[in-house]
Design a protein around this nucleic acid. Sequence first.
DNA 1: CTGTTAGCGCTTTCAC
DNA 2: GTGAAAGCGCTAACAG
Lengths: 334, 334
Amino acid sequence: MAPPQSVTISDVAREAGVSVATVSKVLNQRYGVSVSTAAHVQKVIDRLGYESSLVARSLRSHRTHVIGILVAEFEPFSTELLKGLSKAIGGSGYELLAYSGGGRAGGNAGWERRYLSRLSGTLIDGAILVTPTVVDGEYTIPVVAVDPHTGPSELPTVDSDNLAGAITATEYLISLGHVRIGFLGGRPDLESARLREEGYRRALRAAGIDVNPDLIRVAGYREETADQPARELLTMPDRPTAIFAANDISAIRTVDVARSLGLGVPDDVSVIGFDNVPESALTSPPLTTISQPIQQMGFEAMKLLIDLINRTEVQAKHRRLPTALVERGSCRAV
Amino acid sequence: MAPPQSVTISDVAREAGVSVATVSKVLNQRYGVSVSTAAHVQKVIDRLGYESSLVARSLRSHRTHVIGILVAEFEPFSTELLKGLSKAIGGSGYELLAYSGGGRAGGNAGWERRYLSRLSGTLIDGAILVTPTVVDGEYTIPVVAVDPHTGPSELPTVDSDNLAGAITATEYLISLGHVRIGFLGGRPDLESARLREEGYRRALRAAGIDVNPDLIRVAGYREETADQPARELLTMPDRPTAIFAANDISAIRTVDVARSLGLGVPDDVSVIGFDNVPESALTSPPLTTISQPIQQMGFEAMKLLIDLINRTEVQAKHRRLPTALVERGSCRAV
DNA sequence: CTGTTAGCGCTTTCAC
DNA sequence: GTGAAAGCGCTAACAG
């Protein structure tokens, strides 16, 4: 039935004995085509299995009903978000296009701007930027940022309560009797990382514990960048009895590094993460962490973006979702 | 620095006082541009923050260095695959474009063909089809299927050993003393679903247990379609003591349904899944399941596709990866 | 070395 | 009701 390959609008036109303009009209249900012609053309379209090229179409008409999700990389956080986005898009009539550069796109600051330039104005009607490094400037299409660089700015933003979450994590460790608590920070350019560190410091001070700079390292949220700082903390002469890692990936790496060093978790060192990505339950022991409602964040971001695209009145341009402690097995009292 | 919005090649040309052709040449590092002109144009490009439109570019030159991943939906399996794909793409110079229709795209058989028509010939150099419903016919660009409709066909394919995995799962249940073992089947159009059921039947027969059709239901691999059949199995007068669900999503739903029915897992009913998506560790009790190396499958698919695109000699067009039992807490002996 | 010209597949006036 | 023609942003001959 369906033919092997790329059939264009001209093929359909020729086959149907009409002009491409006419085919285009029936394609887009425009007025000005007789019922019989329309039916005939439709038949040819079906027979040929024709589907209009998103690219060519978008170049001309700037409405594609496609929403772009721009991510540096497909890792646990962004894919979890994708699941929420996918749910939110339900019957909205939009389709999703998730775009990611090669692995280390995260390396080049401003990747989101480049991706956006490449796709916007044409391919997508709106975009969701996942942990973008830069959020200043204006955009030609509606854009929503998730967990961005700076805190809530002009750009519509969805994030979670990073500060409260970090305070909760640290207080939890303190309540377990820990005093020497290490901190493995996130991507320095991200507001979430700043707030998580701030929460750590604040909770420590509130408990009358001095913040020791030696116990603070940058782990960059990624596997490759987390091992070294985790090792440093774990091999200190007077190593911390607990480590708060700014995201689950770092925490998971910390558990692995600890094991490789012959240290038991939580017996020799307690570890708490942040995010509650599904992977956090896969470690042994399963990771105690602070949950962000990531899928929910995706859901909210999508709703917000669709409202923006439709120019619906938007209630709040910044949505902040709550975090919560998830106790599993990687922390214990001392 | 970077200006707010869509600047086109003509803007650059005008600003630099050259023709668009010249700009295009420096953009694509073509010969035929003096060093000084090139430098000047490059400066303007940088100043304007110009980035060429993927759409316009791809319409003309049919090489984009973008690989399409076509999925019906972003759910645990496809996103897990995405992680593997993302890793495989590393320094290859390709970028990833994951495309998904609205939620129930899975409903329309042949979605992958439609998506492909919309994107191919233009936007993407090659595609990975995730659980496509149809794999016949030819394609204009290199295509690799992951876990497709029919088993290994003409189309290059990556899958896992579904038959062996299903046999393992069923034998495991039998070894635990279960005899009345229910089966929650997958998407009927998928070869993986067929093989998993086949494995179930084969293991049963090998153990001298009659296959009871009443104990077999179709759960469709999705949350929405799994609840009802799970409930049916669980509320039978003589309900099974164990259920083998053809994927983790169905298994997780089964655990939930069991709980809502006041049945304990694994005390009243044992449940085993298939896939080992991260979510399977999040249930309580954590799910015993058959693991597929999903990320690895993504990795292999990407390698295969890149070889195909580069016309590198491809060793094997069908790659089948091993499955394994992952014992967690949702099964017990009777 | 540089610019002019012709499209890629499609939508959209605007004549007929 | 229908088609010719222009043009979206870009690349690729081909002239100059």
